[in-house]
Design a protein around this nucleic acid. Structure first.
Lengths: 257, 257
DNA sequence: CAAGATTATTCCACATCGTGGAAAACTTTC
DNA sequence: GAAAGTTTTCCACGATGTGGAATAATCTTG
């Protein structure tokens, strides 16, 4: 066991995968085995395993091994995600500079909103949440903005499955409140979290759309209640909605009617 | 053994990697184990193995697992390569249409040239070579075009290591011939394979340059000698050189002096 | 803040599986 | 067509991967 606590055959397979990645023109079994310091039969079995899983491919005419499309798919899933965040960052910075408050980018995942990127306010006292942070969908501006784009039946199914979290005095507590909230969001084109997740903190959020016209994620500005009066949320919300639409446009997305 | 002839722990590790790829927001150990139908301790060990190899990463603050940058690196190595080929295809088609002969894109790999993409002539009788096909560097137009951009010492080292292959009566056979050929290529800006690899077949080739000013690969047109007279190679070579420079420009590359 | 619940990490006995050498099959070279 | 080289398959053996249990850490609830 070269590395303490790892699975040797997985270590070896990944080493072969990386070696294949450096050889776009492909390589032969025996060359790869020699380079990796493995028995040919071992190398063969590991390559077949990578192949069966789509991470390698074998050209029987040339008798050469190549990286497979699954390695590409896995890597590009990651890369696309990073490029979404990279594309969003200038818009988030602009919005932060315009509002002087923290801006966030989030996605919906299994009944929760995950903050995947954030540009912090330069103010001394600022709203605190970090990338990777999570909130229940119905306590979050970004979550409610995304979910408001769904059919009513899907929203009810989500609430039935995940419940409502009365985290503060202002959190949504029943389906009547949820329905009224969804209608208001649809009318405005943006959502509020008015101390529904954390007392003392508000946010406004709008949806970023994908090229397939699906809600990709949410863009939001969050601030402490001492700095964002309830009366100012509408104007700020319109600003965030416009910025989310601009980001959508730049990314080749579109908002359905 | 669920899949005949594969390595179970590698199958499992790749399945976990793919699962992580669908969760940009990360996932918990116990959730992933449940989804994968594996024991928690098994899943933990496999994830640690992926992590040690850079294919997964663990955020100890959030206690969540994510795809790692190596998956991205491996996938993007593949994707970048495909995008070079994709970018080149329109230029190869243009060149094929203008010349009515087969065009090829190739790279240098360990003393050989590998054809990585090809647009075939529409003529009934045409030059035959296929993607993945290989030729010794000094018998190939693309190979000689690339190598001619190197320092003389590097060329001599390559020849010392890989030798010369007298495949036809016109193949290069000694260093004097090699030096003269390199000088001629440098003067012209493109290279010939004048029946040096296969009797009856000629090609002309020029270099495509990377954004780092390195020779990325070669672009060539190949034809049967009955259709490409020796006297026409210079004009065709200039055409190929110009197209290679245009492709270089479009890809953000540049040719050093 | 303590208790309970849940999740993550580590350990270890056991048997399953991964290993690599050898044989067989196939391909390439001269 | 023989020799050499490479790939594929087989199989005995023991090394390693497995998963349940124990332990540690973290989170949730009241």
């Amino acid at each position: 066991m070269e590395k303490s606590g790892t699975v040797q055959s997985v270590d070896r397979a990944l080493m072969l995968l990386e070696a294949l990645a450096t050889k776009p023109g492909g390589t032969r079994l025996s060359d790869l085995a020699r380079e990796a310091g493995l028995a040919i039969s071992t190398t063969h079995r590991l390559l077949v395993t990578l192949e069966r899983n789509g991470f390698a491919q074998f050209d029987p005419v040339r008798t050469r091994w190549y990286v497979g499309r699954k390695a590409f798919a896995v890597g590009v899933a990651f890369a696309n995600w990073q490029s979404f965040i990279a594309a969003a960052m200038p818009f988030m910075r602009q919005l932060r500079d315009a509002t002087r408050e923290t801006t966030n980018l989030g996605i919906l995942e299994d009944g929760e909103v995950v903050t995947v990127a954030q540009v912090e306010s330069r103010e001394i006292i600022r709203a605190i949440a970090s990338p990777g942070g999570r909130a229940p969908v119905m306590n979050s501006g970004m979550g409610k903005a995304i979910v408001a784009t769904w059919p009513d039946a899907a929203i009810e199914a989500l609430v039935a499955r995940h419940g409502l979290r009365p985290l503060t005095r202002k959190s949504l507590r029943n389906m009547e409140e949820v329905r009224a909230e969804i209608m208001a969001i649809r009318a405005r084109g943006f959502a509020y979290d008015d101390e529904e997740f954390t007392a003392g903190m508000r946010c406004v959020a709008a949806v970023v759309w994908s090229p397939a016209g699906e809600p990709l994620g949410g863009l939001s500005v969050s601030a402490l209640t001492v700095r964002l009066a309830a009366g100012d949320m509408a104007a700020l919300g319109a600003r965030v909605r416009d910025q989310a639409l601009e980001l959508t446009r730049v990314m080749g997305g579109w908002a359905p009617d």
